[in-house]
């Protein structure tokens, strides 16, 4: 008998095979797909997130865990109606215009997604106009912007201004990050949050939605 714990363990260990096997077993036994996600896959990933934050787990392990979890979800997903997919919230994330860095942003996307958010990664070199479009299209709760250079960092400010003019600013919470970005800069340009790294980014998103 597979139980949710085994799946959670599998996620924590980053053992994709084990996770798939057990998820399939549960599906075959007729378990509730939502419970598989919440009590198995997500439960495991929450532990991973916490350990990562505490420094007990490192990026490569987290990545393997995330992969194992996603793999499990892909098995359950077809059994759930689109609207019923559990999601803590929706996040659109991208790197600002004229900036091509994406590894940091991708890490953030991965962590936030693992924390149960529905993340839409819209890529690099995203102009204020494109951010605005993405907000209209996806109606996210949170918008994340990443920039790695002091020069491109200013695009964050411009994007926020643009969103204000378009009347979209209040529709989303805005978070920012990247090597040259600071908390102070975030406050200056009127963003709702900033975080130094990927694990705290996930927390930040949760915090913003509770408030």
């Amino acid at each position: 008998m597979t139980c949710f714990n085994t799946i959670a363990e599998g996620v924590i260990k980053g053992n994709e095979k084990l996770v798939r096997q057990n998820v399939q077993e549960l599906i075959d036994e007729g378990s509730n797909p939502l419970e598989i996600i919440n009590q198995g896959l997500m439960a495991g990933m929450n532990v991973v997130g916490a350990r990562f934050k505490k420094g007990d787990m490192f990026v490569p392990e987290v990545m393997m865990a995330a992969r194992a979890m996603n793999s499990g979800i892909s098995l359950v997903k077809p059994l759930i109606n689109d609207g019923d997919m559990p999601s803590v919230g929706k996040v659109v994330i991208g790197t600002v215009k004229e900036d091509l860095h994406d590894i940091g942003k991708n890490l953030v996307a991965m962590m936030v997604e693992s924390a149960g958010f529905n993340v839409i990664n819209i890529g690099i070199d995203i102009s204020p106009e494109k951010f605005a479009e993405a907000i209209k299209e996806h109606k996210p709760d949170i918008l994340g912007m990443s920039a790695m250079l002091t020069t491109t960092m200013m695009q964050m400010k411009q994007t926020i201004e643009y969103l204000k003019n378009e009347g979209l600013r209040d529709k989303v919470k805005i978070i920012i990050g990247g090597a040259p970005v600071t908390q102070q800069f975030a406050e200056e340009i009127g963003a709702d949050g900033y975080s130094v790294d990927a694990s705290s980014a996930a927390e930040l998103c949760k915090k913003l939605l509770c408030a």
């Binding site: 990026v59 490569p60 990545m63 393997m64 995330a66 992969r67 996603n70 793999s71 091509l100 994406d102 590894i103 991708n106 890490l107 996307a109 991965m110 990664n121 890529g123 690099i124």
Partner: peptide
């Protein structure tokens, strides 16, 4: 190589992407 990194991340091959990067 950068395109390949993005692609890895998109398809959930995080570790491969990070290593390649």
């Amino acid at each position: 190589v950068s395109l390949a990194v993005s692609k890895d991340f998109e398809s959930g091959y995080y570790l491969e992407g990070l290593l390649l990067d």
